[in-house]
Amino acid sequence: MKIRLLVDQWDEPTEGGYLTHVKGDVVDAGEADAARLVGAGAAVGVPVESEKKEAPKRRVRRGGDK
């Protein structure tokens, strides 16, 4: 499910680290993550016609790095 982030930052867990997304990014999140973020008010669903405006991927941060 595509969502648009409303929060300043979301670190998406990935294999071997995290992928950092920032406010306004359109993210293809899994159903569970999307439902949790939308339910918490951290994101909104994106209509199909808006999917073309997807933001480029952000930097990958390896687990344990700060």
Rank of each mutant, 00 (worst) to 15 (best):
V38L: 06
K53N: 15
V26D: 11
D28H: 09
R36K: 12
G41E: 04
V22D: 10
M1F: 05
P56Y: 03
A42Q: 02
T20V: 15
E51Y: 06
D65Y: 03
A43C: 02
I3N: 03
G41N: 04
K52Q: 14
K2P: 07
V7W: 00
E15D: 12
E15M: 09
A29I: 00
E54F: 07
G30V: 04
V38N: 07
K2C: 09
V60R: 13
G39Y: 09
K57E: 11
V26L: 14
K53V: 01
G45P: 08
V7F: 00
K66G: 15
S50A: 15
A35F: 03
V44M: 08
D28M: 03
V44C: 09
E15K: 13
A40R: 12
K53T: 09
G41P: 03
V46E: 11
A32F: 10
E12Y: 10
D65Q: 15
E15L: 11
R4E: 12
L5C: 01
R58N: 05
R61K: 15
K53S: 15
K53Q: 15
A29T: 00
G16D: 02
G16C: 02
T14R: 14
A29N: 01
D33M: 05
L19I: 06
G64K: 00
G39M: 08
E12R: 13
D8I: 04
E54K: 13
V44A: 11
A35G: 05
E49G: 06
A42P: 00
V38Q: 08
K53L: 13
H21G: 06
G64A: 02
M1Y: 05
I3W: 02
